[in-house]
Simulated scan of single mutants.
Amino acid sequence: MNNIMKYQREALLGVFLAAISIPFVCLFPKEKQNDLWAILLVVIASDYIGFGIMDGRMKQKLIEIVLCTGFVVLSVLGLWYSTWFLVIGYIAHGIWDYIHDHRMVMTKIKRWYPPFCMIYDWLIGTWLLYTVIQ
């Protein structure tokens, strides 16, 4: 419960930005929406490369580059094959945020970023799941 209260503002920011992102993307034609979600996933994942570079340690840079590459692959698969890959990408990126927040990966990151991004990712992933199963 302590962590929930500790990250209340970050969680609200994640909810707020997801509440803006979803209607914004829905303004575009259906066939273009996955393009936007895929691009956004790549941008979000690449933030961690920036954190790895700022951290300065080669091991942290490599970890972040490898994982970002995985999210790029999921984004491309989401465009070429199925939205399910975008669902997996956003949910998995939320898990990656969780792992950073709980210091299972030691890249130095602003403490507010992982909880905010985790909430955002999981809300977008849930939205995409909804669009796939409807």
Rank of each mutant, 00 (worst) to 15 (best):
N34M: 10
L123G: 01
L40F: 15
K6C: 08
F116C: 12
M1V: 14
F51E: 05
M5L: 15
T131V: 14
K110H: 13
L27F: 10
W84R: 06
K110M: 13
S46N: 10
F16S: 13
Y98A: 09
G89T: 09
I91D: 01
L13Q: 08
F71R: 00
W112E: 09
M54E: 12
S82I: 03
A11D: 03
L17A: 07
G89K: 11
R9G: 10
P114F: 00
V132W: 06
L41N: 02
V132L: 14
E31D: 15
V73G: 07
T131S: 09
R57Y: 08
M104F: 14
V72I: 15
F28W: 13
Q8E: 11
H102F: 11
V73N: 07
I65C: 01
W127P: 04
P23C: 02
P23E: 01
T126F: 11
L27D: 01
W127K: 01
E64M: 15
W96Q: 07
E10N: 13
K6I: 06
T83Q: 11
G56W: 04
V87C: 09
R111T: 11
K30A: 13
I91M: 13
L13I: 14
E64P: 02
D55Y: 11
M58E: 14
G94A: 05
I124G: 02
K59C: 03
G50F: 09
V42A: 05
G78E: 00
K30Y: 13
P23F: 06
C26I: 03
G94I: 07
M118Q: 09
G78P: 09
T126G: 15
F16T: 11
I133Y: 11
M104T: 03
G14D: 08
Q33M: 13
G56H: 04
I22E: 03
